[in-house]
């Protein structure tokens, strides 16, 4: 069991987390955040292993990981 929480307001939509996720379950949201970025969004949360690669590569520390 693992889950991530993305702080959409801190996210700047750089997409680095999408490239880092080995499960390919991160995408860009179609919504805008307050800064005008498309934040990252997780799809298929049940496939998340909690490897934290997304959190590690996120320059804005927008992702928290729980296991």
């Amino acid at each position: 069991m693992a889950k991530i929480i993305i702080d959409e307001e801190r996210c700047k939509g750089c997409e680095l987390c999408i490239t880092a996720c080995p499960k390919h379950i991160l995408v860009m949201s179609e919504q805008f955040n307050k800064k005008g970025y498309h934040p990252a969004k997780q799809i298929k949360p049940e496939e998340c292993t909690g490897c934290a690669f997304c959190a590690m590569i996120c320059p804005d520390i927008s992702i928290e990981v729980f296991k």
Partner: peptide, 24 residues
């Protein structure tokens, strides 16, 4: 929680451009 913000950083959001490595 296995990954979060370290105590040695404040809560202030970084002013760096998207994708800039300064934050990391």
């Amino acid at each position: 929680k296995v990954f979060g913000r370290p105590e040695s950083l404040t809560d202030v959001p970084f002013t760096y451009c998207p994708g800039c490595h300064h934050g990391t």
